[in-house]
Amino acid sequence: MNIAVCIKQTPDTTTRIQVADGGGEIVDDGIQWIISPYDEFAIEEALKLTEANGGEVTIVSMGPARVEKTIREALAMGAQKAIRIDCESIPNDPGVTAKVLAEVLRGRGFDLIFTGRQAIDGDQAQVPGRLAHLLDWACVSVVIDLAIDGDKGTALREVEGGSERVHFTMPAVIGANRHLNEPRYRNMRGIMKAKRIPIEVVQVDAPAPQLEITSYSYPPQKGERKLFENGASDVAEVVRLLREEAQVI
């Protein structure tokens, strides 16, 4: 079973995201880059499947040379191969990403493609569904449990208040969610091995974007904050304000 895992380099979750003056872009400087956390569940699941069934895991990521550090971090978990799709900056139109990925991944003999349920920067959650459509494959997103049996699979996907049991046909694109598994640590042997794996760099003509982010802003500041310092004895007043001023209860 040969598996591709599409990963994205994103700012660390602890990053305070800064909007550039004028709101035109997000400030890149000083960002600590990581693998988008959901992608680690994708990598782990792919590794488990190939460990059980044989085959190789290929890490795929789009971006400038900077993302090779993140690719190495993915390889250090135990993947065998890697592809970087070269581009000046990571597209913020998921349609572009999906089309480029489809072009690169098509015809390489993959049985499964994993992604995270969404990348934690754009939070678009579009690539799995779009990519599957372009490849004419099945797609299950937000997966928390997965079993593959020959040309069929069963998955649980998270939905409001519970989960859906889903049957699908192979090949498939799977969007991994937290709780699908427990991603392994990168052990020292893995880190040293990852160093030696060549990263295939692929050039693709990206299609034109279909959407444009015209401005970024911080969420609007709300009204005056009130701090009540007397604990339980202030509660009656807080409840009154919630009812009469905020009108939320």
């Binding site: 700012p11 990053t15 305070r16 995201i17 909007v19 997000i26 934690i120 920067d121 754009g122 939070d123 974007p209 279909q210 959407l211 444009e212 982010i213 015209t214 401005s215 970024y216 802003s217 911080y218 969420p219």
Partner: peptide
Amino acid sequence: RPMYAGKVHADVRVQT
């Protein structure tokens, strides 16, 4: 729409 889990908001225009 919110991005970065709500740390920023983005205004998006669509060309299609």
